[in-house]
Design a protein around this nucleic acid. Structure first.
Lengths: 146, 146
DNA sequence: ACCAGCTCAGTTGATATCAACCTAATTTCG
DNA sequence: CGAAATTAGGTTGATATCAACTGAGCTGGT
């Protein structure tokens, strides 16, 4: 311990840092949904990604990245196992040869339909543990951060 | 689009899922602090980890993992680059040969001292963007999730 | 003392995350 | 039309994340 890095400074960071607080909550929630969705071979992130694909118009990678607040190249990597398993299909955009359109396959939709009740039950359990918390406000705060 | 996976269901997940909301905020905040701390060669996670090490008693890996809501093995991996760079030292616990005690080195403390003003400025900027939001309540919500 | 069970940490394999760099296609403007 | 700027996407290298497995050390009961 030195005079120029006292415990009080680190306590300030630990207590105040939103980055740290959000990361901890993110890890805990991801673990929780990972476990719940394990039977379907899906992680929480893969589930969210597939949910984001269920649109009337097949989105491009560049459309999804901002929605997930995720780097474009992360999305490229995240799609690989889903495409390999035949849950997601990538097709060249007919209007723009640079773009690729992403869509759930029949198998992907089947899996999502089966996983949905588990998501609902898991989220209900999370909600139940947070009685007294204003979750709509929390979601609003998180959207402001993203 | 099929009848058994309508858009309304996916909109429910997108709007309600705390896991998705927290992951998005986590990515955005991590990116932001990563950029801010880049000049020190530190990521936001490495900064948080080093802050957690600044204790009067050098903690063990098993002590830190719950504090960071992180898997124990993730911590083992995260320590490697910090130890390699001489910012963190691992020493066998004298009382228990299974345990290792983690401590910042002199170089590690130096780096943290220099990085601290950047953390403060970055967090002040985040706070400024969230005027009207109750950040203490937000931190409480996030602690409840972790 | 012994051994069964527990605790602490590391390793492996898979996915996640991003910056930096790269290629190809489109658009813009002179 | 044609070169420059822009845009979409992929690749590489590094770190982050966790589950499952492994091994080493400790502890309590007999």
């Amino acid at each position: 311990m030195r005079d120029d890095l006292p415990l009080s400074v680190t306590h300030t960071v630990r207590d105040r840092c939103l980055c740290l607080h959000v990361q901890r909550a993110a890890r805990a929630l991801a673990r929780r949904f990972d476990h719940a969705l394990k039977g379907f071979g899906l992680t929480s992130g893969q589930f969210s990604l597939m949910i984001a694909l269920n649109r009337s118009e097949p989105p491009r990678i560049a459309d999804l990245a901002p929605f997930l607040a995720m780097d474009r190249t992360t999305l490229t990597a995240a799609l690989k196992p889903l495409v390999r398993r035949g849950l997601v299909a990538m097709a060249r955009d007919e209007a723009d040869a640079r773009s690729k359109r992403l869509a759930l396959t029949e198998a992907g939709r089947d899996l999502l339909v089966r996983a949905m009740p588990v998501w609902t039950a898991t989220h209900d359990a999370v909600d139940a543990e947070l009685v007294g918390h204003d979750l709509d406000r929390l979601r609003g705060d998180l959207r402001a951060l993203a």
